[in-house]
Amino acid sequence: MKKTLSENSVSTDNEMLVKVNRRYFLRSAGVAAATGAYILGACTDHDLESDQIVELGSGDVGILNYAYALEQLEAAFYTQVLASPFIGITEEEKMILTDIRDHEIVHRQFFKAALGSAAIKGLTPNFTSIDFSNRASVLGAAKLFEDTGVQAYNGAGKFIKDAGYLLLAGKIVSVEARHAAAIRDLLMPDTAFFAGDDIVTTSDGFDVALPPVVILPSVQPFVMNRIGYSQLPV
């Protein structure tokens, strides 16, 4: 049985219910609220998730679900990192990674609570490409997730209509950037890599901003569920 990303999702293991709701979902695609409740936590030995599209929705709710999806991915990743620490992990590394894990859990639970019935379900991660016993593999993935998070929030800001949501995204993105720099400094201590030329444009000192249509395909390999984003603003 697969674990879902959401700590709180209850595994029903009821294939029939999943099928029924999947039909309902397909019929009412576009109504975000309708898709959430019953599918949430559905989990069977048959991998039904791979052909279920998790639709993020439209407008600010769609953007918040987009953020929620990314935070689910990050939280699940660090939870796994701390559950099976890589070989030779130092006390300092453990402290940093534990803090980051907890921050991502806070972000995830915040979005879940804020979205309420409009929240997408708990996603199922796919971390088969990551070797959790290997430091370089884990920190490399952490760097990718944090930098991607920064680029995603930076690119999504302009799509947010509500000033309150925009501020909330701003409150989170700088914490993601703090994470990114901390992880990068673990990889190459005391160098320019914390905000390296590979990620911050040298000519103007800008971090990258990327729209959902670029970010989502790049994170899709880490999620079993197919994420639908056709209603997000571009």
Partner: peptide
């Protein structure tokens, strides 16, 4: 200031792109 740029999508994005770099600096 993000909210004050909400109707200027491009400038808002520029500000965010600088904002996160400042956060990387702060972190280190």
């Amino acid at each position: 200031q993000a909210g004050n740029l909400i109707s200027e999508p491009l400038l808002l994005q520029y500000a965010l792109q600088i904002h996160s770099v400042e956060a990387r600096h702060a972190s280190i």
